[in-house]
């Protein structure tokens, strides 16, 4: 077959000069638009050496922001994993009217600017909001406090796990689950022993993406957090506060933490894709 193709000609764009030229151009642009921004974070953070970097990182307000960010991630990621499994199970294992609408609804937060999400949450829980007077009456503080940060982060990251699971579970079909149920397994047994093992890598990657986004969310959180330093600043907000204060080294030191999380997420993706390429049971090609 290959011989027959070669007898006619190579494919479009395979002329050596064009191929080398286009690849070189793309690599050059990539170096400017992707590698340079990533590099400068670490170059600036370590500009004055490791001790200065550690000092800049170990400020009490930065450490507090890091703790808050970890707390928010610790709540949001498991909740959205649970939601992701429930939503993916609903739309892939059952057929019902309105299924497409449900999927569209799940994807909605992706299409909405985080600022709009923040403003919308303010109109629910803020003093002027729907529930504001009731909350004030019962002395419950949600806005400009940790609960609001968690809620806004849940909104922004709700689709991440679902969108990794649905294409895969759709492609895998229902036969295995139906067989398990016919053999007497309960719904939870089927989920735990049949469905989840089949999608564990996609689930893991969805969780990693969700985590990266939770830790890095800026727009929605900056509206609802009140941005009180040492109290309701998450890491991204802390970076902005430090930068506004001309504490550039401290800002970059804080940025390296989030950049490291992002790089870790990408490495995880890389490894998962490689593992999938080697495992015959879970092939994402089937989903593509």
């Amino acid at each position: 077959m290959a011989q027959r193709i070669n007898r006619y000609r190579v494919r479009v764009g395979d002329a050596p000069l064009f191929r080398v030229g286009l690849t070189g151009l793309v690599l050059a642009v990539t170096a400017l638009v992707l590698i340079a921004p990533l590099s400068i974070i670490f170059v600036e953070a370590f500009r004055r050496g490791l001790p200065a970097y550690l000092d800049a990182l170990a400020r009490p307000d930065t450490l507090h922001a890091l703790g808050l960010t970890l707390l928010v991630a610790l709540v949001c990621v498991p909740v959205n994993i649970g939601f992701g499994i429930a939503a993916a199970w609903t739309v892939t294992k059952f057929t019902f009217p309105g299924r497409s609408l449900l999927l569209a609804l799940v994807e909605l937060p992706f299409s909405i600017s985080p600022i709009i999400a923040g403003v919308a949450y303010l109109f629910v829980y803020g003093g002027q909001g729907l529930l504001g007077p009731w909350l004030a009456e019962h002395d419950i503080k949600i806005m400009f406090a940790v609960p609001a940060i968690i809620l806004a982060s849940l909104f922004v990251t709700a689709p991440f796990v679902v969108r990794e699971l649905v294409p895969l579970m759709m492609a895998q079909g229902r036969d295995e689950e139906e067989a398990a149920v016919t053999l007497g397994a309960s719904g939870f047994q089927t989920l735990r022993l049949v469905t989840l093992p089949n999608v564990k890598l996609a689930l893991l990657y969805g969780a990693a993406l969700c985590n990266a986004r939770v830790m890095g969310e800026f727009g929605a959180v900056s509206v609802v957090s009140g941005n009180i330093r040492g109290q309701t600043s998450t890491m991204p907000l802390q970076i902005e506060l430090l930068y506004q204060d001309s504490q550039v080294l401290a800002a970059f030191a804080a940025a390296t933490v989030l950049a490291a999380v992002a790089l870790f997420t990408l490495v995880a993706k890389f490894l998962i894709e490689r593992a999938e390429a080697h495992s015959p049971t879970e092939s994402r090609d089937a989903a593509g």
């Binding site: 992707l34 974070i41 800026f218 902005e240 989030l258 990408l266």
Partner: peptide, 17 residues
């Protein structure tokens, strides 16, 4: 793998860089 950097990198970090 690099193509996904803008999705994984927080926007505040991207803005700073």
């Amino acid at each position: 793998a690099l193509v996904d950097v803008p999705f994984a990198l927080p926007t505040a970090v991207a803005g700073l860089a």
